[in-house]
Structure formats: structure tokens, C-alpha cells
Design a binder for these strands. Sequence first.
DNA 1: ATTTTATATTAAAACGTTTTTAGAAATCAT
DNA 2: ATGATTTCTAAAAACGTTTTAATATAAAAT
Lengths: 337, 337
Amino acid sequence: MGTIKDIAQKAEVSISTVSLVLNNKGYVGEETRKKVMQTIQEMNYKPSRSARKLATGKSGNIGFIIWEGHFYDVEMFYSQIFLGMEYAARKSDSYILLTTVKEEFDPKKEVPRFLKYNDVDGVALAGRVPHTLVEYLDRQRIPFVLIDYAIPGKNYNCVQIDNYHGAFSAVEHLTQSGKKHIGFVGGTYFHPSIKERYRGYKDALEAYNLIGNGTLEKYTFAENVETSPLIGEKGIAVLLERNPDLDAVFCCNDPTAMGALKEIQKRQIKIPDDIAIVGFDDIATSCFCVPRLTTVNVPKLSLGKEAFNLLNEVIEHPSEPPQVRTIGTYLVKRETT
Amino acid sequence: MGTIKDIAQKAEVSISTVSLVLNNKGYVGEETRKKVMQTIQEMNYKPSRSARKLATGKSGNIGFIIWEGHFYDVEMFYSQIFLGMEYAARKSDSYILLTTVKEEFDPKKEVPRFLKYNDVDGVALAGRVPHTLVEYLDRQRIPFVLIDYAIPGKNYNCVQIDNYHGAFSAVEHLTQSGKKHIGFVGGTYFHPSIKERYRGYKDALEAYNLIGNGTLEKYTFAENVETSPLIGEKGIAVLLERNPDLDAVFCCNDPTAMGALKEIQKRQIKIPDDIAIVGFDDIATSCFCVPRLTTVNVPKLSLGKEAFNLLNEVIEHPSEPPQVRTIGTYLVKRETT
DNA sequence: ATTTTATATTAAAACGTTTTTAGAAATCAT
DNA sequence: ATGATTTCTAAAAACGTTTTAATATAAAAT
């Protein structure tokens, strides 16, 4: 492969000059620069990462952490976000180290090894993630960004989905197909994203005059556990019990919607004529189920890309005030509405 | 954090001694070793990865490559294999760099950056992967292992699933519930794993005397495209057309089985009474569909773990003859049989 | 008692960069 | 012409390890 020394010799300049060319720094004569560049090309020289990292003190890696459960889920959601980051990283010279943490994260017991050994310059956290982990990062002054999550009362760098407008447009769409009794099925109700989706749901109902007094509660089902098809099944069952006139349901995400779909089918209720369903996330499975799910698309790749950009800014300027960036969503109409 | 120098000073030994203790090499007196260890503990010292890598010449990273399509699929299959590797890697000091390649891989155009910059000691390739990529790795003498894939006529290090026995037991199970006319739906028929599954299917039919002359072809459907729910839908349609007496179908993997399931449901045919279905892989979705899919479980985490171990052996001893390791499978009986 | 071998420790070289410092040459202002 | 900048290049220090070679002591073998 050759080292920087070989290049310097062949191009008849000093090592320093080659380094300057390599990094676009300092003053280098146009002619010298060209000669060096050409030599680099010719000898197919690639600077050694380890050497470079040793000299600069940066690791050149960034960590990507998700809750372990999300890896076992039906959801490709977080994998897609990761992929978005990976795409962005390809243009830079950093690598992304993916790992998982358990729900009950305890920094005294076990921390991801790239944190322990200081092998990342920053970390992206996707989705619901242990607060103890976030606090740990904060305490250790390790730059980080949250993706599709926020911690109530805290002001951290994060990339958000436009949950509110997504939910609003979903419910709006239901009203426009004539639905009047629209339920909401949620989970983990302390999750900020779900809260926002609920707010969008509520405001849409209000905007279309579908709220009497006290009816909102009757049409809402939420349990404080991780969202899953099971919650969807249970939710729709409860809502149907409470409201025989239910004619549509907005589920807080696709797995929940899948569960609802299953339960509704089991009861031989017609979709979407008797009950329409709309989900949120647009995960891959949602267009393979029968009937195909109407849902709010979340541009997962963009989410990852934006997170990568933000994280790099945070790494560069650690003392800037926290930023919140919001990624838009759009409704994908399929067969359940 | 402190460097090896600080440790040496505090422990009143030389840098070399600390290094020897760190790596369990050479001769170090018991007492000295203890003192050094204790100092390391006290100062919470972690050796710098970059420095270490620079000195040893190894990157300490291993690459994990899958075809891009597998990332967009419904399948969590390859993510799980990755996770298995990541778990294994946690016990060592290496990181796993995950990336994707396009189907038409051309080393002259674009190679994964960790290959280009020599940042990995070896590579794991999961699933169907461009042959041009494998040849590239072979040519560049980069240690690699294939996971759940093989290239016909070539003898590479790989970790395989026991496709044959998995398929055999699946079909055996169908016969045991009284099925006599068992179809096969496949895809990408040059894929070695699917070939093996087909062989298991065929041998099981033979073992249970379900093959007349020429009937095997009638009960087989395969198209040379990536397996997907669509293939399943199409396959079952064709098989039903050809064989009105069809009473069971073995699909070459779960996504295919999902498609078949959908199509069968659409035609109002009773599952499993009229037609039973069994898939292969046991991906997460297969126990969330309605009815829940009977399938052959593939221990994906073990697959990843074994690949990690094998790859490390290959990295250590690059000139050993290629090994094939096989991971067992087992049938998971659910509601489609 | 002497040589050999095993054990224990260290100084110094090597790994391949970046960065700092210094000095020379060219350009500019006076 | 002189001094002050600006532009260009290089030598050398630094980054934090591993590894090699050298030295010293203790134990074993002759």
C-alpha cells in the first residue's frame, strides 16, 4: 500500500507537505499540490486510519445505540434509520458502530464497549432508550443526539418526526371518508412521540367537530407498555366494547395497527367499510399485510441522515445550545381506508 | 484517562512491563503483575485503540456485508445474524462494521469504504451476495466467511444452515398430519440454500411414498427471482391450478409462505384443514400473522456467533483449508398445520 | 565452579500520521 | 533599498502503543 513517507519520497517533497495536501491545510504551491496528488493517485495511497486517529485524538467512529427490544421486534424501523446514517457516513470518513442496550441500563454494571473504551466521538440514540443511559452520556460529556425520542423536561439535541401533523392528516383523512367515530389506540403513553400523535388526533377531531363532552376518553385506549400488535388487539377490543358505533381507528404506530387489523378480521368486521384503520411509521410489513395498511410515512433514511449531520455539528461545537430538527411526514393511502 | 506512561510511573515499572501485563505476554513477576493490574484498576486506564492498532498493524474491525435489498425487506433475518455477531464481538475487542452492497457490485466502481481503506481484518457476508464481491475479496486476500450462502463450484469458508434436514422434517410433519399432495414454492433456484431445502422436500416425499412418476414437477413451483411474498402468491395460484387436489405446501422461506397464506385466504380456502402451510426461517413476523405460521426455526444468533468465531480463526490462520460449519434447525408448530 | 537456561525488567525502535516551529523565498509597502 | 507580510516547504516533536534487543538475575545442569 505504501505510506506517506513513500509518497513524499516519490514526489520529492517532505512528509509534512503531503499531509498538508491530504488535509487541505496551510499553504501549498499549486504545482507541488498537483505533483503530490498525482503521486497519491499513482501509488493508490490510502492514509492509515490508526495513525491518523492517533495523531488527531479523534476516533472517527460514531456509535448508534438502540434498545435491544427494537432489534427483536417486527419493526425494520430502526434498521432503516441506521441505514440512513450509514449512507451519510459513506461520504465522510467515519464508521458507525451499532449496538444495543437492555432496558434497565446501569452504567455501573455494563456500558457499550465503545463508550467504555472511548472509541467513538459521539453517539446517536434511536427511539426509546433508557434515561440512565442518556444521563450517563450527558455526565461524561459525550456528544449525542436523540432520534425520534425526547426526555421530558430535558433539552437535548434531537431529530424529531413531525408526529403532530402526521397524526392530524391521518385523522383528517378518516373524517374525509365520512368517518365520525374515530378511536385512538396507543401505548407507552409517556413516550413523547406518541403524545404528539395523540395531540394531532385530538386536534383533528376538534377541527372537524367530532368531540362531544367526555367522548374523547371513551374513544381513547392506551396502556403503558411497549407498543406491539398485542396492544392493538386489546385496544380495538376495548374500544369496540365501549363504542359499538366505532367506525375508524387511528393507531399510534404500525405494529399496533397490525394487531388491530388482526383482531378486526377475526371478528369478521369489514375493512374499511365498517371500520377503517390508519397506522403510523410505514414500516415494510405494512404494505404486505392484507388488506394493505394506510399509514403515515416516516422518511427513515432522512431521519438517519439528519441525525448524522446534527451529531457531527455537535461534535464540532460541543458547547452550542441544543437543537431540535423536525422531519416531515406524509400519508400513504392504501386499502384500510 | 491517562496513558500507559502514567501507569508505568505510578506502578514504578517500565512502559514495556505494563504492556506485557496488558497482553499477557513474556515474563512478568507475579508481584509486579499484581501491582500493575492494581494501578490499572485504580486509574481506570483503557489502552488507546488507535495507538494499539497502529503498533500491531491490525484494525480490530471486522466487516459485515449484506445485499442492500435484504435491508429493505420484511425480513429481520439478517439483522438477527448481525446481532449474533455483535454479541460475540462484545467479548473480544473488535467492532463490527455493517454495510450494504448493491446487487451489481463492481469493484472498479465502488467498494465498501472499509475495504478500500483497509480498515477491517476480515469480512462476514450474509445471505446472497454478489459473486463479483466474493471474488474481489478472494483476489485481495481479505479473509472472509459466507453465512447462509455458498458459491457453486467454489470452496470457501462458510457457516451454513442445516437446510436439508429442516426441510425434511417440515415435510415429514405435513405427511404426519395426513397430507398427501404437498407442493413446493421456491425462488432464486440457483440459491444453494433453496436447493438444499428442495432436496429435503423431495427426499421426504420419497421417504413417505408420495411420488408417482412425473408428479414431482407438477407440485413444484419456482421462479428465478428473489423470494418474496409475491412469489408465494403466484406460486400457490399456479400450484392450485395444476393440482386441484393440493392439500399442503412447503414454502422455501417465510416471506414466500406469507404470500401464499395471503393468497389462500383470499380464495377462502381453510387453513390448515384444506391446505396446510409451512415456511422456513421463523422470522419475527411469522408468529404475528393470522393464523400464525408453522415454520422451521433457524437459530440466527448462533449463526452470527459461529460466523464470528470462524472468521477470527480464518484471520489467525489464513492458509488453512476452508471450513464448512453447519447450524441445526428445528420445526416450530403453529397454526398453519 | 562454570556454563547454560529460564525468568524478569527495561531502553529504544517502530508504527504512520498531524501539528508546531522554524526558516526561506516571494511579494508588497514604504 | 529596506523592512514587513505573505506564501511555501521541511525538520522535528508528538500521539500511545507493541515489539525487539539488551541486560541482569536466579535457577538448573554440567
